[in-house]
């Protein structure tokens, strides 16, 4: 188990499984509104970042590529947040 957790990709997989469970649970309890949307976007950002850094192996890549991929994630999450914020007004 300790050996398993030494591998960053294995750690990422575990966190991704738990995070997917949380998003599913928020759906089960019918979470809605600003707080739940922000929570789900934060979870999606954390998950996406783990895929980018530990699965795509961009942690050790030139900074430009990290900025492009993580930037994409931030832009998409921001646009979604903006649209939901507009819908709540």
């Amino acid at each position: 188990m300790i050996d398993f957790l030494k591998n960053s990709a294995h750690r990422a997989w575990l966190v991704l499984m738990v995070a997917t469970g949380i998003t599913w649970y928020l759906g089960e309890v019918g979470a809605a509104g600003t707080a739940s949307i922000v929570a789900m976007l934060v979870i999606a950002f954390v998950k996406g970042r783990l895929v980018i850094l530990d699965f795509m192996e961009l942690r050790e890549a030139p900074m430009m590529w990290r900025v492009l991929l993580e930037g994409w994630l931030i832009v998409v999450a921001s646009l979604i947040l903006l649209a939901y914020w507009i819908s709540l007004k």
């Binding site: 599913w24 789900m40 979870i43 999606a44 895929v51 980018i52 795509m56 979604i80």
Partner: peptide, 26 residues
Amino acid sequence: LESGAAYWHMVDLLWIVLFPLVYVMR
């Protein structure tokens, strides 16, 4: 192998946004 893997991870990355957006967020 790394190139093909990167594409496969992208498919995963897209679903990580798509699932909460279309199925859960309200």
